[in-house]
């Protein structure tokens, strides 16, 4: 309806976007905010768990208690225990830190690397664009996880390498987006106006191009955060991330796999945590995206 109105009477004082914002879309803003409840709750909970796990966890995540092994979810152990009697709920809470840290750090590395590559390609001239473009195409040709596995195989397993591996794999996607944004913006009237006002290329890049190019990156990075958490868990699941018995969601999944028929809760709840975080990040990025568009 709104597009129709705008088409008919652009600039009408009654129907101007300014007026519409104050009257018509009051409920729209609330609907928009309502969508934030799920991602904010989930991410808020796990962020708190990552910062201060001892506030939320009733047990020591590493304390062994053989007498309690394989207890199903119940009043004593909310989400049950594993083969050594460790509390699954406490382990998930303590696992939030490495899982989220890997996700966030990997995304930061990916976006940071992409910023350099994308800027070189999008603003550095034809030769740099061609050179960087070829590198990105090669990286794109390999499946992401395979690339990460190759890197870990070369650098050895561990949390640090997992972070770098996941960061490296996600960088090409962001780099391509930044390059595209810069190429579009470079020929925009905004840049022309800034040139006429006497701004240098470097100044235009830092004050106008990059900040505007980064808006969609913020949305995509949030989406990528969920993906990075899943990837980090996948690598740990394969035994390439945090070593057991460290509480890490991927490693917990892997450990529980052996007892899948006996104690489903050992794999189900860590898996649920991964799914929740990934879903929450996805929903959050969608809401951000809609907010940016409106």
């Amino acid at each position: 309806m709104s597009s129709h109105l705008q088409q008919l009477t652009p600039g009408d004082p009654v129907l101007s976007p300014h007026a519409a914002r104050s009257t018509g879309s009051g409920t729209g803003v609330w609907k928009h905010r309502l969508k934030l409840v799920f991602p904010v709750l989930v991410l808020g909970f796990f962020t708190l768990a990552a910062i201060a796990p001892s506030w939320l966890a009733p047990f020591d995540p590493l304390a062994i208690n053989p007498a309690d092994s394989f207890s199903p979810p119940g009043p004593g152990h909310l989400l049950g225990t594993d083969e050594s009697g460790r509390d699954i709920y406490s382990r998930i809470i303590y696992g939030a830190r490495p899982s989220l840290l890997i996700g966030a750090a990997a995304t930061a590395i990916g976006v940071g690397l992409a910023l350099i590559l994308g800027t070189l390609a999008g603003f550095g001239g034809r030769w740099l664009d061609a050179g960087v473009g070829r590198i990105l195409e090669v990286l794109f040709a390999l499946p992401g996880l395979l690339l990460a596995l190759v890197f870990i195989a070369l650098a050895g397993p561990g949390v640090g390498t997992t972070i770098i591996a996941v960061g490296l794999t996600t960088a090409p996607g962001y780099a391509r987006l930044i390059r595209g944004q810069l190429l579009t913006l470079r020929h925009s009237p905004m840049v022309e106006a800034a040139t006429v006002l006497g701004r240098s290329r470097a100044k235009i890049l830092t004050t106008h191009l990059l900040p505007n190019a980064l808006t969609p990156i913020a949305v995509l990075g949030t989406l990528g955060l969920g993906q990075a958490v899943v990837w980090a868990a996948s690598l740990s699941f394969l035994g390439l991330g945090a070593p057991p018995p460290a509480p890490e969601w991927g490693a917990m999944l892997s450990a529980g796999r052996t007892y899948l028929s006996l104690a489903w809760w050992m794999t189900f709840f860590p898996g649920l945590a991964i799914v929740l975080v990934a879903a929450a990040a996805t929903v959050l990025s969608r809401v951000l995206n809609q907010g940016e568009k409106s």
Binding site: S188, P189, M190, E192, A193, A194, V196, L197, T207, H208, N212
Partner: peptide
């Protein structure tokens, strides 16, 4: 100096 037909697109949003 310069001014254009579509001033809005010449401003940083």
């Amino acid at each position: 100096g310069a001014i254009y037909q579509d001033p809005l697109s010449s401003f940083d949003p």
